[in-house]
Design a protein around this nucleic acid. Structure first.
Lengths: 344, 344
DNA sequence: TAATTAATACTCACTTTGAGCATATACAAG
DNA sequence: CTTGTATATGCTCAAAGTGAGTATTAATTA
């Protein structure tokens, strides 16, 4: 094994919870702008101080990657996390723009963690943020988000058409129809990352503009496209470094996993009503589901069993409380809550 | 970002092709036993010299992880790879047993690459090995592999029952029924990694014995269980380091992906018969499929289109040749070849 | 007591899937 | 030329799963 230069290994955690039908992420603030390369772009609203919790991996001390993650998550945020899963390892040069200014090469390993929302504690200045503030085009529960047709599609089509090489242009157009395709039925809720990457390349998210300007200042490698400012204003909140990309990776993974693994239950209290379960699934998958069919699916597959208790809160007929049937883990082939197409 | 100790970042490639209905992996040999911690176990047949191709990631030079991978794969093996996908990042301490003998901490990023088998070239001493020689319990095309019931189940059950703590014992048994469950219909062909991990923990693969002895010699941390030698002899070929684990990760990922992404076509020539396509799918998923239904699925979903040519080779009625309909990539929601349960 | 809200039960058409039968088209042996 | 064998391909049918409703039940509130 030959000698390599040095890289810093960093662990990032996308810690998700669902409270009041809203998926939220635990984020930390760095008021000293420790993560900003410098203030390059006064127009783009890049929240370089809002970041996913992260911590170093110390090869001399940490026994495993996951243990290191759990340790500093507990220290920094006080949040207890249940399900944990490795997402992806990010190693592109300059994905941390501080590398441009002489910072060390950073390789980041992203993790997804699911839990229940707890009051932040620890020294990490943690706070919960609505996930769909970062990825507003992904929430279809109130219909197709208007921003897609009002702003994004035209900018994206313009970007695709502007490519001079026919082969690359065709590839861009293919990706565009595949990810943002006009037909509602063709919208694939798992292609979250692909959509984000398209928006980034087209320069329609604030961090693309940030990275473009940083590269223009320090090196001459082409960065992302220069996008329209009105689109950048419409694509929601950004975050430090490539953390919005990690969120997109995480949401795509969650949505994919919902179908064949009972991960939702990590986000719920031990006892819940079927409607609450449905709302959590809906909030994560971003679409509304047919109530009766959802109930049929969940009960037919014996994912849950009644606790015997009733939920007397709220108006209407009281709902039975259910608990997750832990034993399904050793029974069924792919126990999940299967998300269908689109509900009106 | 605090200072960390140093770790070497290594990229590993699981390069797969399917030739003559057999999935094969491109492996390299290191005749100097560069990867062995030392010769600890004369009984277990650990092929420490058969390894997945690997190369360093050099933070000072390599622009992206994937580019670095493609570069040294081309140099070492001369193999051209099509589809490439990151699998997982492995960072457990002592996953490279040479760490025990003072070697540097290694973090390995595993990649999956699909291609067509080419004659190995380059300086890597590359050669193709039948994947199911490493994971023989995963090939069900000739029926349930006898090794499972003849040898593995009893050893695994023994291992699960030997755990003194009831909670951990129950968890082991749950994992056992979930992964190796006696019921054929419950066998999930995607749980390749989970099955390998169970066998490793139970000490039923040769490299578990290797790691156990290495740990016993150098440190006092408990390694995997000491398994029965007859089981170790029955679980196929091993490979260097944790490379068999990476193979299991790769096979699980391929099998999962088959269903909803047209990855098979990376492994086929531009034109092929439907039977050839079916055989490739079968070889990867490890089960036989119903011919007529497979054909119906593939054609109904318009994954392929006839080229007009006929395959006159071999006996029987000539088969129409088909090509992959590239445009499906921008059309259907989840174009894959859907693997059903078990075929008799 | 009626209106409102939500839970739950049940129906029905349509699609997908698993399994098998039947026919078509080649080559080879007699 | 005929028959046997091997493969490709067409077609049927029942069972299971899915999408979209209607109907009924059980609570609260005006």
């Amino acid at each position: 094994m030959s000698k390599t230069g040095s890289a810093v290994i960093v662990l990032n955690a996308v810690i998700a919870a669902v409270t009041e039908e809203t998926p939220r992420l635990l984020m930390v603030r760095h008021t000293d702008h420790a993560l900003a390369v410098d203030n390059l772009n006064p127009f783009a609203e890049v929240d370089d101080d809002i970041a996913l919790p992260f911590g170093p991996f110390n090869p001399d001390q940490d026994r495993t990657l996951e243990l290191a993650l759990q340790q500093w998550v507990a220290e920094q945020t006080g949040q207890s996390i249940g399900y944990t899963e490795q997402l992806y390892t990010f190693g592109d040069r300059y994905r941390d723009p501080r590398e441009l200014a002489g910072g060390p090469r950073v390789v980041s390993i992203g993790y997804l963690a699911l839990g229940r929302e707890e009051a932040p504690s620890g020294d990490g200045h943690g706070d919960w943020f609505d996930l769909y503030n970062f990825l507003p085009w992904e929430d279809w529960r109130y219909g197709r988000p208007p921003v897609i047709d009002d702003i994004l599609m035209s900018s994206l089509e313009e970007w695709a058409a502007a490519e001079p090489y026919p082969a690359i242009r065709a590839e861009r157009q293919r990706r565009l129809t595949m990810t943002f395709g006009h037909d509602d039925a063709a919208w694939n809720f798992e292609h979250v990352l692909e959509r984000y990457e398209l928006l980034y390349e087209a320069g329609l998210v604030a961090e693309a503009e940030r990275d473009r300007l940083a590269r223009a200042k320090y090196i001459n490698t082409p960065g992302p496209n220069a996008g329209a400012q009105n689109a950048i204003n419409a694509t929601g909140h950004s975050a430090a470094l490539d953390h919005r990309r990690m969120m997109a990776t995480a949401l795509g993974r969650i949505r994919g996993k919902l179908k064949y693994r009972p991960v939702v239950f990590e986000l719920l209290p031990p006892a819940f009503t079927l409607l609450r379960l449905q709302r959590v699934v809906e909030s994560l998958s971003g679409i509304n589901l047919h109530k009766q069919n959802f109930r049929r699916l969940v009960t037919n597959n014996k994912l849950v069993e009644p606790t015997g208790a009733l939920d007397t809160e709220g108006p209407g007929r009281p709902a039975k409380m259910f608990r997750f049937r832990t034993s399904v883990l050793s029974e069924r082939r792919a126990p999940g809550v299967g998300v269908p197409k689109i509900a009106p």
